[in-house]
Design a binder for these strands. Structure first.
Lengths: 126, 126
DNA sequence: AAAAATACTTGCTTTTTGCAAGTTATCTGA
DNA sequence: TCAGATAACTTGCAAAAAGCAAGTATTTTT
């Protein structure tokens, strides 16, 4: 579990909400430039810190640490052993996290339709 | 058209993209804590600067200015006269902006289902 | 012609980001 | 088994963005 002494401003406190609006609450959790890209990677089958860090957008590792912690606290991902018997950890989506899939697919579809120079790449386009 | 001398870092440059991924490109445009709340307000029929500023989340007005400018540049909103013959401006979604509606609805549904203490409020739940 | 409201802009402080470098724990194979 | 090699972070610091209060320039209203 990543734990930095810098990690715990309001953004990382899941009890601080700007309003009771479901959209606002959702954005309190994943409304930033990186979090949904980690979710995208998880949906695509990536599971390890290094794999997320190697995605083409180039997330800084301190941000990655912070976002994984936030997602853990938010119940969106959980940690599992990277290999049977290994002490290394991997990440996987919880049920709550898997439920984000329709959001990602909708965003992808919008991007493909409205943003030029955009290319598919998220398989399982159902 | 809001034009501040502080407005034009990379985030506001629509040609700077982190990757060709449609999700990443979409997040380059609206991946932050505020933009989708403005879109939500527009979908709910709010049209004026003041109305956006009065939403319960309390967006700072300089951020609101910046995000409206970004959305204008991104082709997501356009300006129209606030009333027939008025010189005051209002904002409305373009076709590209209206296409964001499914994203907002999906996020709202996720929030309602998975975030406790969340309340509906986005009418027209189709 | 004031007064009020609207739509921003500015200045300043705080928070977050991004990058490079460092650290610790785990693993691999000679 | 033990010396790299790799993985998974953490830290420090400069730069960017956010947030807040206050100010300003246009309408609009009275």
């Amino acid at each position: 579990m990543p734990t930095s002494k810098h990690a715990a401003p309001d953004r990382d406190n899941p009890t601080v909400r700007r309003s009771p609006c479901p959209v606002a609450c959702a954005l309190d959790l994943f409304g930033d430039r990186w979090t949904l890209l980690i979710i995208r990677d998880l949906i695509l089958g990536r599971r390890r810190f290094k794999e997320f860090a190697e995605s083409p957008e180039g997330i800084p590792t301190n941000i990655l640490s912070n976002r994984l912690e936030r997602l853990l606290n938010g119940g969106v991902v959980r940690q599992i052993p990277a290999d049977k018997g290994s002490k290394r950890l991997a990440y996987e989506l919880t049920e709550k996290g898997l439920a984000l899939r329709p959001i990602l697919l909708t965003i992808r579809d919008w991007g493909l339709q409205w943003e030029p120079e955009t290319k598919a790449g998220m398989e399982r386009g159902d």
